[in-house]
């Protein structure tokens, strides 16, 4: 059986004239079918480096990475281009891949309507709120129909209210579209409320410190908001908190 993503003994060093910086040290893990996998670790430990490897922006120093499916990358900042209106920002990925056609445009229209951005189609980024901009960035990523989403602290630039709302939306999108995702975050609550499994990384050079299955009892359909009310939520929080507390 092949996994959407599988890393085997992956190491990554960055070379500069001053030093050789080992960032990822013999990392192995898998992403299961239909799973949202969380990656938690201290800042600067190498989380973004992992996603850059997975999206082939950089290549590993050693080890093997297997990927089955197209990757969509969503960043911490929305990186909307100010001189393009919303629809033109969304189609930039398709434009680059020369995949703009009637079908893909119809699909984008559907997403715009679904996530309350239809009326802003011809607006410019500076006219939108932070939450809306991040939603546009998500639709831009989804427009190229990736199978696997990589999310690099995608909500951390938003205020608390917007953050809960947008993470709820993103969660629903991932589930509805039946995609896999890797969510990098340093927010423990956010991780517990969204992911099926959480990988805790050590300080740089990053190694897998522990892996936790997150099973929450939720009434009705699970969403990041309802997950926060689950009775197990607090226990998981304490466990992950302890795991991440490197001062001990």
């Amino acid at each position: 059986m092949s996994y959407p993503i599988e890393l085997r003994n992956v190491s990554k060093s960055f070379y500069t004239m001053d030093q050789e910086l080992l960032v990822l040290d013999d990392l192995s893990f898998k992403l299961n079918k239909g799973e949202i996998l969380g990656i938690l670790g201290p800042s600067g430990c190498g989380k973004s480096t992992i996603l850059n490897l997975l999206s082939s922006l950089i290549s590993p120093t050693s080890g093997k990475i297997n990927i089955n499916g197209d990757i969509g990358y969503m960043f911490q900042k929305d990186h909307l281009l100010e001189w393009r209106n919303i629809i033109d920002n969304i189609t930039i990925g398709l434009e680059i891949q020369k995949k703009i056609n009637q079908e893909s445009l119809l699909e984008i229209d559907l997403l715009l309507k679904k996530y309350g951005l239809w009326n802003f189609k011809h607006h410019y980024p500076h006219q939108l709120s932070g939450g809306m901009r991040q939603r546009v960035a998500l639709i831009r990523t989804l427009a190229t129909s990736p199978d696997i989403l990589l999310l690099d602290e995608p909500f951390s630039s938003l205020d608390y209210q917007t953050r809960l709302q947008v993470s709820d939306d993103v969660y629903k999108i991932i589930r509805e579209e039946g995609k896999e995702a890797i969510l990098v975050t340093h927010d423990i609550s956010e991780a517990i409320s969204m992911v099926d499994r959480a990988i805790i990384l050590t300080h740089r050079p990053a190694k897998v410190k522990s892996i936790h299955n997150i099973n929450l009892t939720v009434q009705g359909e699970k969403s990041p908001l309802s997950a926060r009310k689950a009775p197990e939520f607090k226990d998981y929080f304490n466990i992950l908190w302890k795991e991440l507390d490197y001062n001990e």
Binding site: N52, I71, F75, H79, I96, T144
Partner: peptide
Amino acid sequence: VDKEKIKMLQSFGASKFQ
């Protein structure tokens, strides 16, 4: 020009010319 924006385009497979 913002390196992160270049990274965004590269994540879609953009060429240097693009």
